[in-house]
Design a protein around this nucleic acid. Structure first.
Lengths: 337, 337
DNA sequence: CCAAGATCCTACAACGATGCAAACGGACAT
DNA sequence: ATGTCCGTTTGCATCGTTGTAGGATCTTGG
């Protein structure tokens, strides 16, 4: 078995409390004693038992991150940033997958599994308006994704409305008028689809273009396959379009593939725009014009925000909303006008 | 503060140990008592403190997974499968990123951070032969990636040599003779590059094709950008080739992009083959022919293997090596002959 | 009606760490 | 020589749980 404070203490010939003091940097220790203890620690390869320390201190040094799936590149990259940011604060990250499923999201908020962590960063997707109460949990919680109603939590997101509005206007400025959308999600409350659609509609309206629901395609999870399926529907629907705005890059990439299979040229016949700026988007054929949502900023800020909450546990800190800046990345699939 | 066993016990009017017994399904409890306790639990919303339970039981219910980066799609998808498999066994998964860096891999093996988990699944990339001793750790450890030398650990991997041999022969059968490679990694011990190169060479030899190192390009981390850079080198090198075997899909996709930028047709001028069968590979233009390495099987098996080790902690179980079956997925970038 | 054996419940000691307060010993002033 | 003070070390309680052992209560058979 691993060595404990007592083992070290026995070897060093001091009380186990002294060993604890050495480890925790207590100042009043005679150099000779400190050295004895350190030698014993080294000899036994002692490492503190973090579980015991957690029990005593009430802090675990771990946070949880819950995303729909790591199989969705956006969330994989986001998770990578969150883990890196957490590590910089000496926290480890426990990753959960909800599948974007309402029941699993709700179950997670109740789950004792989280008791092993100091707080949760949740990217909800399936939850509905009536579930808002479930967000009143006894641990620090930061939400990712669009803020919609009043709730008692911190919140970090991209500027969905502004970004899709800007994206749509970018397409309009480049001469497109019939801009299809993929990724609409009627019932959603917490995800970004609804706000993204709003930004899109605002841009149309501001430019005197009529909203045509025949070229608005839904997609619940945002896999490439969903983008492909949606594009098939759009093509079969027969309503004309000269651009496609995928509400994320994987949808856009799935759609772009289908467009080209159908013999349409991108961007010649149809321009394609995504959101996320995945690594992958720079290497597709053609490379994908997209909107950088500030992923890394979001990840870093979410961890910081959670840490502030953890530090002030008890004291009430009003819920905060923090929004990242976005940036349009011009590439081949939708060149500027 | 959260309720404890004592709080529940007070409310129910029993000893706290009885509450513990109810929770742990101890059989001899009068129905009336059980009900009283359960009502108290519900009323207080009691949830067991997992940290205390861990301290007492010595098990944490968490495992750690360490991969180079979640930004690499292969590892993101693998992590998703590992988390899902762990969850089926009621384990949570703590994800660490090593960046494929030797020092960070070694540090991780020593780190007390892992003391919060029951075991580790590690996908080493930077470690060298002389670091093998570092793998003798006091906790259950399962390694992913090519087994190279004798070491005292369990090991789950794909069949690298056979797969690249089969892949190379597939290209040869389709009429290609000058098959370039991207992803070679000279110094590597634990990663897969070396074995993959071996399979490639075996296939060449078996078919009387000479090995030409001018068309073998290195790449340490396997991002799309690395594949792109390697392809630029190959093109500038001037040695002719009519196929490219990327040692993973992201390398292949990065390379494919550069090929087409250079005006070469895929697969007309150059066939492209990858390994991993990423989701993305089905949606590139052209879609990528690739080798399915059995990712999900690997993830599931790694978790199972780790669990066996955890269960028999102490008892010596000889180290095992488990290899997944692979499958060539025929798509457009390299059609069958 | 009592002893024996189930059945149900409780007391106490861990697990390995930290916080608090008190004990120790030497230096110094009185 | 005694008391005070400070730097240094220690003992004890504690975090919330589970394991072990044994006490209390209830059945049951003779």
């Amino acid at each position: 078995m691993a060595a404990t404070l007592h083992d070290v203490a026995d070897l060093a010939g001091v009380s186990f409390k002294t060993v604890s003091n050495v480890i925790n940097g207590y100042p009043h220790i005679r150099p000779a004693t400190r050295e004895k203890v350190e030698r014993a620690i080294a000899e036994l390869g002692y490492q503190p038992n973090l579980t015991a320390r957690s029990l005593r201190s009430g802090r675990t040094g771990a946070i949880a991150l819950a995303v729909p799936e790591l199989n969705l590149s956006y969330f994989a990259e986001l998770a990578g940033f969150v883990i890196a940011a957490a590590e910089r604060s000496d926290l480890v990250t426990l990753v959960e997958q909800t599948g974007g499923d309402r029941d699993r999201e709700l179950a997670l908020l109740q789950s004792p599994r989280l008791r092993m962590t100091d707080g949760l960063i949740l990217s909800p997707l399936g939850m509905r308006q009536e579930d808002v109460d479930a967000l009143e949990v006894p641990f620090p919680l930061v939400l990712l994704g669009e803020p919609v109603f009043d709730w008692p939590n911190d919140h970090v997101s991209m500027r969905n409305v502004e970004a899709t509005r800007a994206g749509t206007e970018y397409l309009i400025a480049s001469g497109r008028r019939r801009i299809a959308v993929i990724g609409e999600h009627e019932e959603e409350v917490f995800g970004s689809a609804r706000s993204r659609l709003r930004g899109y509609r605002e841009a149309l309206e501001a430019n005197g273009i009529e909203y045509d629901e025949r070229i608005v395609a839904g997609a619940t999870l945002w896999h490439r396959a969903d983008g492909a399926r949606a594009m098939h529907e759009l093509l079969e629907g027969g309503a004309p379009f000269d651009a496609v705005f995928g509400f994320n890059d994987t949808l856009a990439l799935g759609a772009m593939r289908v467009l080209q299979e159908a013999g349409l040229r991108v961007p010649g016949d149809v321009a394609v725009l995504g959101i996320d700026d995945l690594d992958e988007a720079a290497y597709s054929i053609p490379s994908l014009t997209t909107i950088d949502p500030g992923r890394e900023w979001i990840a870093r800020t979410a961890v910081e925000t959670l840490l502030e909450r953890i530090a002030r546990r008890g004291k009430d800190l009003p819920p905060r909303t923090k929004l990242a800046d976005f940036r349009i990345i011009e590439r081949e699939s939708a060149p500027p006008g």
